[in-house]
């Protein structure tokens, strides 16, 4: 069993509106799985179904080889995008309460909370009320509450909102560490740079349909255009351009560089990157040579636009 979660042909309708139309995806064990899509695409509907907040109209969900059932709640940790805590309740009481709702015993919850509070160095907040904390502080508590019961499946919906870059980095590190310790993570966000940084797999949902999924590297490979951005220091710029044109498609490039010289986007034809490089080195001093790999952002925009 390589998939922790299998979503098979899930359909969900609200009245006459279809929120999820025959959506299937497999989430491999021990991976960070990016669930992407524009606003209103159906991500939250899917996440709520996985959390058993709502039920699908048809289709099935398999968690770790078993059909999803109420007792699985204890194996799932969910950090919703719309999140908060009881404002007038003390941090410690609140964390204990939420942990117990996830099926932990009080003593066990206390022990684990101590570990996390020490780790984040927030032990002093135990008897403070949430309303006395800043938003970032409350988010830290919220993160701890989500992961405390050591679930197999963690679902983070925009986990970095409300964090400053330093704390966002801290949380990102924690998420990756949880993955390394064996947890499977569904990660939903609009911040594409964090998708690049963290996701092993992605799935893209648009207008209630899944339009793309797979390993992030594979998808990138699929979407690669064989275009190289090059910078060349040469006295014979026009001549080099003409010669390049014979074997490659070229277009002007615009990138920031400290070096003067020719800046071009070069698209390979039947030749290889080595052919390009050896030509360039023969005609000047190469100061920039980068394959233009499509970013998650590019793939997102391109795929969504194509289906619209």
């Amino acid at each position: 069993m390589n998939n922790l979660l299998e979503i098979n042909n899930v359909v969900k309708q609200y009245g006459g509106y279809t929120a999820l139309n025959d959506v299937s995806m497999h989430i491999p064990k021990g991976s960070v799985f990016g669930l992407l899509g524009p606003n209103g695409a159906g991500k939250t509907s899917l996440i709520r179904i996985i959390n058993q907040i709502t039920m699908p109209d048809s289709g099935e969900i398999i968690l770790d080889g078993e059909k999803l059932a109420p007792h699985h709640i204890e194996h799932i940790g969910y950090l919703p995008e719309e999140r908060g805590l009881y404002k007038s309740m003390k941090v410690g009481d609140q964390a204990l309460y939420l942990a117990q709702l996830k099926g932990m015993s009080k003593s066990e919850a206390k022990k684990k909370l101590k570990y996390w509070f020490d780790k984040f160095d927030i032990g002093a907040w135990w008897n403070k009320k949430i309303e006395e904390l800043s938003k970032g502080m409350a988010q830290k508590v919220q993160f701890i509450v989500t992961v405390l019961h050591e679930p197999k499946l963690l679902i983070f919906d925009e986990p970095f909102s409300g964090f400053d870059p330093i704390n966002a980095q801290l949380i990102a590190k924690e998420i990756l560490q949880l993955r390394d310790e064996g947890a499977t993570i569904i990660f939903s966000t609009h911040r594409m740079e964090s998708v690049e940084e963290m996701c092993d797999y992605i799935a893209l949902i648009n207008k209630s349909n899944k339009i793309l999924d797979g390993k992030l590297d594979d998808i990138k490979r699929q979407y690669r255009t064989n275009v190289f951005e090059i910078g060349l220091k040469t006295d014979r710029a026009e001549e080099v351009k003409l010669q390049l044109k014979q074997n490659f498609d070229i277009s002007p490039a615009n990138f920031k560089s400290l070096n003067e010289g020719l800046k071009l986007n070069v698209k390979l034809k039947s030749n290889t990157a080595n052919d390009l490089l050896s030509f360039l080195t023969a005609n000047g001093e190469v100061n920039h040579f980068v394959e233009l790999v499509p970013s998650a952002n590019d793939i997102f925009i391109e795929t969504v636009n194509k289906t619209n």
Binding site: N51, Q52, I53, P70, I73, I76, Y78, P80, E82, R83, G84, L85, Y86, K87, L98, L101, K102, Q142, V145
Partner: peptide, 18 residues
């Protein structure tokens, strides 16, 4: 209403039935 406005509701209903 407090649970709705404080946005804790979704956290809770992922643990217990509404």
């Amino acid at each position: 209403i407090e649970e709705k406005t404080s946005r804790i509701i979704e956290v809770i209903v992922s643990s217990v039935k509404p």
